[in-house]
Design a protein around this nucleic acid. Structure first.
Lengths: 191, 191, 191, 191
DNA sequence: TATGAATGAGACTTCATTCAT
DNA sequence: TATGAATGAAGTCTCATTCAT
């Protein structure tokens, strides 16, 4: 009779887009960009291959959108971690980090993979580098307040620790003693 | 022409194989596994595509051999780093690590890429995990001798630091303050 | 809302059909049959893709209808060019031809393209051949009245001239000396 | 045992290339560029689709090579048509043209199609326009020697005649009275 | 041992067509 | 009557692999 309403269409589109982006995220986080074909994504999303091109101009475009969404979502506001007590703030940062690793390892893996491998997605590197700089400056200031002798290098160590623990969890998975390390690091830096 | 002797043939085989594996390493470390075609490897190695299949059953097989070799070669004997003085040994380990990062970043990148992305090469993860365990046990023993309260966790921290610095150097490249961090860590752990 | 009357519906249908056919003509004359997608035509016509299939069974069918219309419209009645004076009639024919070339080059290009390239639209060739035969017979009769020795072949020459000038204008566009040729030919045949 | 000799390979390559280009010529001349898929060309040439890309970078590239070859081959040297007697030269030109039309109508159709339709191959238009200019200048000079009042426009008429007869032969095929027109035109211009 | 022409599966992408609303 | 989300066949192109020599 009458065509679908604009709202109906909007909802349909939003849902399809979501299914596609979720499928892309899942598969690319697991297998990497090159190993994940459009066909696999469509199958995982339970739509036709053609439909992907209704929503994205290309595979690359689709992944960029997916990445941007993931980055936005993963972007915790530093302000939310701040406290009057520097030790408290450091504890918050550690706790935030370990929560991330536990709950969003897929996201972590995705970023790591795309950052390392694909020339096309090098913009992620830049964003990641900026974010890291921000955290390093925060930690430096906190460690300074706590009287560390070389707060900059100590902050760099903590940043490297985060990256390194991330990598090791990806390799060792459940075998990595996340709880123990969390407790140990908080004790070490916030005692 | 006279038939080549068995020894000559063996030498020829060894050299061709070497050229192929070197080319594969170079290109895959730079561009990644999926982006490196057999044709490119053959060209870089200055042999024909067909010859690759004379030495390896498949691209996957070739890369596995290349990886195994690379892992063997990268396998520094722990014994070579040992000293009577635990502080000296720790310094040796740190120096070895930073030398690795400086001189063989390609190797590092290669391992990281293949390990994270390609289901086919996940066996590297296991090898890497074993190796890491070995180093952690060594560090644990050394830190124990130096009177650290929790030498296991402290050793884990150093292992994560190594991984993390590796990742950050891959992202930041020359911008990463390698020299400064090396000096700082040696001072911190071996003073 | 009240149901539309039959007449209203008819008007609506006619208008939609017109918009679609006009858009198809415009785009296909400019870009060719294969390069003009249904989506583009729908967009140009400001209707939905689905609506096209309400009026036509297929892209091919739509183009056939469009072509038939275009041919009908381009079908100048010979009777309108006739005069008592054969020279006057020839002048009318020449002037009609050059007017066509100037004002409806798009139409010309469309026919040429579809006729030459697309197996599906070869039926136009037959129509064109019939039309050409008609004109040749007319010219033959006129040239006969003017005392030409071989009026049939001379008429054939004029027909070929028309086709040839059409081709050259398509290739050379504004560079072709249309005005000069028109004057020259009229002078030559109607002096 | 030993690999194929360089000469063998060269011959094999030349033959495959030839088969591909011939198939492309044949099909594109018949059906047009867009309607002729790589798959059809490969089938006609009796090779695999992949092989085409061993010899050409893209479909467009392949067609350009094919066109350039065809244009080279079709490029009759004007010098070969010249004679001391202008009438004799004109006769040679006419005879050359009708021989072309009789023997290489496919070539003619191909050029016409690509010239009209495909933005990608517009370079053919330019070449064709240049060639035509050359012939027009030649005819102009000859007609001038024969005392024609307006030799330039008369030469333009002959050029258009050639194009027009070409088009009509494409449409009417065997029905077109080629022999009669050839005799008539030679009689008309060279009597 | 060594070559490279040839293959064919599968990648990304386009687009005519269908159908629920 | 009208919409546009969805489909799937077909298009161009890439590349690991085979095989005659």
């Amino acid at each position: 009779m009458s065509p679908k309403s604009a709202i109906q269409n909007q909802e349909i589109r939003a849902e399809s887009k979501r299914k596609i982006l979720d499928a892309a995220f899942k598969l690319i986080a697991k297998d990497g960009y090159e190993s994940t074909s459009i066909a696999k994504i469509a199958k995982e999303a339970e739509v036709s291959k053609g439909l992907l091109y209704n929503y994205f101009n290309s595979k690359e475009d689709m992944v960029k959108v997916m990445l941007e969404e993931a980055l936005d979502e993963g972007d915790v506001l530093i302000s939310g971690l701040l406290s009057d007590d520097p030790k408290e703030t450091i504890r918050n940062v550690f706790q935030w980090f370990f929560r991330e690793i536990r709950e969003r390892l897929d996201y972590w893996r995705l970023i790591t993979q795309l950052t390392f491998n694909i020339e096309k997605f090098k913009f992620v590197q830049e964003l990641a580098a900026n974010k890291m700089g921000e955290y390093i400056r925060l930690m430096q200031s906190l460690l300074n307040q706590l009287g560390y002798e070389n707060p900059l290098n100590e902050a760099r160590i903590i940043a490297a620790l985060f990256d390194g623990i991330g990598v090791e969890v990806l390799v060792l998975k459940e075998q990595y003693p996340l709880d123990e390390m969390e407790a140990y690091l908080i004790e070490k830096y916030c005692k």
